[in-house]
């Protein structure tokens, strides 16, 4: 738990720095940890933060660790809000738990899955990870909307998030269900999908709700 608390302090320092606040007094005031003063001393001892006059700032290694925590937290927020449409307070409390338990490997998968989002739902920047740097060269997001898919590419439907339940039934009656492989034939003037030997035309609203993964 000690490490979790340290992470919380590092995270707080990071977000306060984003707002241009660095004072120790301010930090003590806004921290929700019980023994903040003690934790700060320990962090100084670990070489993660240092005291500069009135201010507490991150050292290079502290910066690195804080960056990872922030990244996990904000990616978790994206996952919870984009995919599960949870309300804000749920997102915040769950994201706080996620930031401590996600391994680097899982974090990369989540990041890739979400298409390497640059900002969290609140508009704050998500620190880039190794996977994002690769992404700019050769890795593509795992799951994308069918409307963003490439023409002629083969994609497996991963999930469908319809605004109306009725749509799910209609699509599934035509065989458009998670697991099937489709090919995107055209995007304009309507989206045309090839599913086996069936060709189905849908409008953009529906193509937006079908999430696919490249085969």
């Amino acid at each position: 738990m000690r490490e979790h608390s340290k992470d919380e302090i590092l995270e707080l320092i990071w977000t306060r720095e984003e707002e241009g606040e660095r004072t120790e007094a301010g930090l003590l005031e806004s921290s929700q940890e019980e023994n903040t003063e003690e934790l700060i001393e320990e962090l100084i001892h670990d070489g993660l933060v240092e005291r500069k006059g009135e201010n507490i700032v991150l050292t290079p290694s502290g910066h690195e660790r804080a960056e990872r925590v922030i990244r996990r937290h904000r990616l978790a927020e994206c996952l919870l809000s984009n995919l599960f449409d949870l309300e804000d307070d749920h997102i915040e409390s769950s994201a706080c738990k996620f930031e401590h338990i996600l391994s680097d490997r899982v974090t990369e998968s989540v990041c890739t899955f979400l298409g390497h989002p640059p900002f969290c739902p609140h508009g704050k920047p998500i620190p880039r990870g190794e996977c994002c740097r690769k992404f700019t060269t050769h890795v593509v997001p795992l799951v994308i909307r069918l409307s963003d898919a490439e023409l002629g590419g083969e994609y497996r439907i991963v999930f469908i998030i319809p605004k109306q339940k009725k749509r799910l039934e209609r699509l599934s009656a035509m065989g458009l269900i998670p697991g099937v492989v489709v090919r995107l034939i055209q995007k304009n003037p309507s989206y045309v999908i090839q599913l086996g030997e069936t060709m189905i035309a849908v409008d953009r609203g529906i193509a937006d709700e079908i999430y696919v993964k490249r085969v």
Binding site: R167, R170, M174, S190, M199, A201, D203, G205
Partner: peptide, 11 residues
């Protein structure tokens, strides 16, 4: 309500 466009295209 808004109308969905879902249509099968025969060969």
């Amino acid at each position: 309500e808004e109308v969905d466009f879902i249509m099968e295209i025969p060969p």
